[in-house]
Design a protein around this nucleic acid. Structure first.
Lengths: 65, 65
DNA sequence: TCATTATGTCAAGTATATATTACATTTTTT
DNA sequence: AAAAAATGTAATATATACTTGACATAATGA
């Protein structure tokens, strides 16, 4: 899978570290890192939680045309 | 979780059975049924595959404000 | 420069998404 | 009304999302 640069950028825009975001959504830092690195396929509920933490939508961070 | 009626409606609009959709995205009928019934939390890749099969986006079928 | 924080990665474990098989009921078609 | 197709559900099995703990390096701040 490809890296999720939109996620990385949205997190940077909020000035949050991977750990900050992980804590905000209740997963570990490694999980956030793996999602950004494209290492796997998160559940839609986790994606939605990440989107809410970053004030984005699923389409903005996880949809590819 | 609540039922996913938007998914059920989008599938109906394409005149596809749960099995038709399951075949189109490469999962079992039970998995599609469980998603519609809100019984669990699919991966974002499966959600995206379902969206493409139904010509919808993640926001349209899986995002709640 | 030194300490701290952030990131990337790995190995081993646990939780859960998804498969398989099966059966009952409901809905649609003939 | 009967047959066929679609749906809902359950039990057991497997693949994989996610955790935990750890280590190395890069970047940031004192």
């Amino acid at each position: 899978m490809a890296k999720n640069l939109r996620l990385k950028a949205a997190r940077a825009a909020k000035d949050m570290s991977q750990k900050d975001l992980a804590d905000a959504v209740g997963v570990t830092r490694q999980t956030v890192n793996a999602i950004e690195m494209g290492d796997y396929n998160p559940t839609v509920r986790l994606c939605a939680a990440i989107c809410r933490a970053l004030e984005k939508t699923l389409n903005e961070l996880f949809w590819e045309e």
